[in-house]
Write a protein that binds this DNA or RNA. Structure first.
Lengths: 127, 127
DNA sequence: TATTGACTTTGAGCTAACTCCAAGTGATAA
DNA sequence: TTATCACTTGGAGTTAGCTCAAAGTCAATA
């Protein structure tokens, strides 16, 4: 697959794909004889994984570390597990924050709704 | 309340508090005769609100817009409601991404666990 | 043959959200 | 009185994660 195809498939710009490769998120992508990237199955899987993690806000540095461990084979399983557990912990925390904020927004929006409908003429701004 | 007290209370650095004020997230904080900030109830409420929103990743630009509308009184209720609805939509999307990623991490961690326990000697790296 | 268009590289530039620094002020402690 | 300390300001610096620009290569088309 060319970079344009992969770019379309995963909705990441070619620049971003090259950047990910440069910083070590992807093991060097195979090339044609003229040096043009020809993404294989493995590269695509990694890109999909990275995209998923990035969408959740996992830092690139962490992903580089993970990919490096992955490249070293089975001896790094324990370390990889610990790394993923740490990220999960962070995401659970983030999830909690987001849930709290959504609840707060729900409340505020409901109040504004009521004001709009004239059900609350008494409203004092409280945030 | 002094900036140091507020800083401690909300776990935000004094620099961050001054920054928030400078960019317009807080209406000018009251001062003592020597120009030292003396945070009042309203300032604290705003700080708490901003902190909650920032913890969920809501952009400062958006919050500035919201605070500006808030300052203009009841005529902006509809606009404020729309703004909050948009942010809620973004957070729901984010929540979805995070949930997906947590599920994926749970799966990976489980697999690594099994490998560690010798239950899976056959494992092929798949991400 | 000439040009188009997708690719390549290197390296600079950008944005958000802080974070830090230098220089100054004013109240309190020794 | 002198020194300390928490505060003040303006403005520069930092970090993550891209994003863009310039200059070049190569295969395919007019």
């Amino acid at each position: 697959m060319t970079i344009a195809e992969v770019s379309k498939k995963y909705d990441l710009t070619p620049d971003t794909l090259r950047y990910y490769e440069k910083v070590g998120l992807l093991s060097p992508v195979p090339r044609t004889k003229n040096g043009i990237r020809d993404y294989d199955e493995q590269s695509c899987k990694r890109i999909e994984f990275v995209k998923c993690m990035r969408n959740a806000g996992v830092e690139i540095e962490i992903l580089i570390k993970y990919m490096t461990l992955l490249g070293k084979g089975k001896s790094t399983v324990k370390e990889r597990k610990e790394l993923l557990e740490e990220q999960r912990k962070k995401l659970l925390e983030k999830q909690k924050n987001i849930n709290e904020t959504i609840n707060r927004l729900n409340y505020k929006i409901k109040i504004y709704e009521e004001i709009s409908l004239g059900k609350r003429k008494d409203f004092t701004e409280d945030l």
